[in-house]
Design a protein around this nucleic acid. Structure first.
Lengths: 338, 338
DNA sequence: CTGAAAGCGCTAACAC
DNA sequence: GTGTTAGCGCTTTCAG
């Protein structure tokens, strides 16, 4: 009743060889024409002694671990949590397990964990990279481990990615403001070295330009995907001599900050200021008034990511091209008609 | 430049033996008095060919994988997401990796994944169990794998757990209502087979009884930790001939449902109805009015959990007793003074 | 129908 | 100072 419950144990107890037991337990009885009695006896005994195959040993010899590394900058962010949920779901359906890393928005931790993943011989890696450094990711490619970016990505590498239609989502949001008569529209951005931020910013600018509205420099502000940035930027914007009538928050955290600032200043949405947030959250519908948002389909991003990575694991040669997942405007009550 | 980058490769290329290379790379050069030149040469070459030790092989031979299984019923629930974040953080600090399972509130998946964890020879398992079935967890103990429950737990097993002070948190919330003059206080519960729900319910009842208020049967309702339950129960409660003046929602999801129902019915908090939610969420402070909540310290639960499981991994014999983590009332604006 | 043996990559015990 | 060997638990030829 010790830690002993290996193939060998079963073999010895039954007077068989490990090979036979292995074959019987892996449904290869037919192929090797092992007698039904033997198979039954083996299965029965395995059950009895609580045998559970050692996936580590299996992995060692197959050089396949049925494991996918998942690197997320912040699992407490609902956007990533929902994505992670769908990734785990799809992966486990294919009998793969997820090794989760929360990089804590820290490139150093990310680097260390990339090494860790490589050492653990994961079969593939799905990562939402933290920052703009990606040398460590090239190492993954060098090791021939399938790699895929989600959400965040780099255009100056050939690593495939799956992301939202950041440009269009942003464009649509601004268009909504414009259609409601707004012309003084502010943007609170994240770190512009991120491609997603650049794309979203592009959408903002293009929508304005197409409608003959020149972009007021003061209204394009912010520098970080954080609540604090949203909060401070909002206060600044609304204290401007010529304040905007509408704010577009470039992600959920910034949006929270905006909401906090507005609440604190005693202003009301949309009477005093209109708001759209990039990233939908269930609770945005519970606010009074509810907040219009650009919803990223993180479920779908997660699903596609797993399908992709499995494809790449099976098919060493296969080249994948980036996938852009459409966003959707969730119309609520935070945009005032002027 | 193929998949070859093992100890053996290095050994061969350098005309050494795998043993020496292993020792050099694991800082045992001193102990074995390997010459500095050799060590340098080895390290240099390892770097060159992009060698990365195979943790799988290491694990096989050490029968230790530096891996902790984490089983969560729903990673998209912020309460669990935050806990998971802190668990990953603490684990990675100790050079352990997390294998994440989202049980999707499905006992069958949980069972399957328990087997999977066992097969993967994780060094320990931290689980927030889905339901009331726990036979499959006993299997883990039988395999001598350290096991620990967080949040949810079973009193009729000896498996240690770390959870919030569910009784006290609930008691405090009701006390707050009472202190504000409420006597008609409703409770919307989750599934009562869960120990956490029972404890929270106990806190509710005891606070009322101690204050000479008899518990109105109609006001104790609900049967599930879900938004829908919160929504439907609220509608029922508020349509009662003699409706309560205060609602206590027994978890965050129920709370969301309550908020939705109240919003839909055009009522306002706290003028028409007072509310406290068990589980704090950042956004509760952004609502107008902000919502008073019982905050569970999921950060601390996560941290303690990892410390515990590591202790148990190191110290096979060690017996751990349950830990109850205090809760905290976050006072906001959702309780009316009568 | 089943057994024996090699080997996945690594470490540790034992040599010299 | 370094090499050799055995073995972790499994699968997979190759032999019967």
């Amino acid at each position: 009743m010790k830690k002993k419950a290996s193939l060998k144990t079963i073999a010895k107890n039954l007077g068989l060889s490990p090979g036979t037991v292995s074959r019987a337990l892996n449904g290869k009885a037919k192929a090797y024409r092992i007698s039904d009695e033997t198979v039954d006896a083996i299965k029965k005994h395995a059950e009895e002694i609580g045998y559970s195959p050692n996936l580590i040993a299996k992995g060692l010899q197959a050089s396949r671990t049925f494991t996918i590394g998942l690197m997320i900058p912040d699992i407490a962010n609902p956007f990533f949590a929902i994505m992670a949920k769908n990734i785990e779901k799809a992966a486990s359906k294919a009998n793969f397990s997820i090794i989760l890393v929360d990089a804590e928005e820290d490139t150093d931790k990310e680097k260390r964990q990339v090494q860790n993943m490589i050492g653990r011989k994961v079969d593939g890696i799905i990562a939402a990279p933290v920052g703009t450094a990606f040398d460590h990711f090239l190492e993954i490619e060098k090791q021939k481990i399938p790699l895929l970016f989600v959400d965040r990505y780099f255009t100056d590498s050939t690593i495939p990615y799956i992301t939202s239609d950041n440009f269009q989502g942003s464009y649509d949001a601004i268009k909504l403001f414009l259609d409601n008569g707004h012309t003084k529209i502010a943007l609170i951005k994240g770190d512009e070295t991120a491609e997603t931020v650049r794309e979203r910013t592009k959408g903002y600018r293009q929508a304005l330009e197409e409608n003959g509205i020149s972009v007021e420099e003061k209204w394009e502000t912010g520098n970080e995907f954080s609540m604090e940035n949203g909060y401070l930027s909002t206060k600044e914007l609304l204290n401007l001599p010529n304040p905007p009538t509408a704010i577009f928050a470039l992600n959920n955290l910034i949006g929270f900050g905006v909401l906090q600032a507005i609440k604190e200043m005693g202003l009301t949405i949309p009477a005093d200021i209109s708001l759209i947030i990039f990233d939908d959250e269930p609770f945005l519908s519970l606010l009074s008034p509810s907040i219009t948002a650009v919803k990223q389909d993180s479920e779908k991003i997660g699903e596609i990511a797993v399908a992709f990575i499995l494809e790449k694991i099976d098919n060493e040669g296969c080249e994948l091209s980036p996938v852009i997942v459409p966003t959707e405007i969730i119309l609520r009550e935070s945009v005032k008609k002027i």
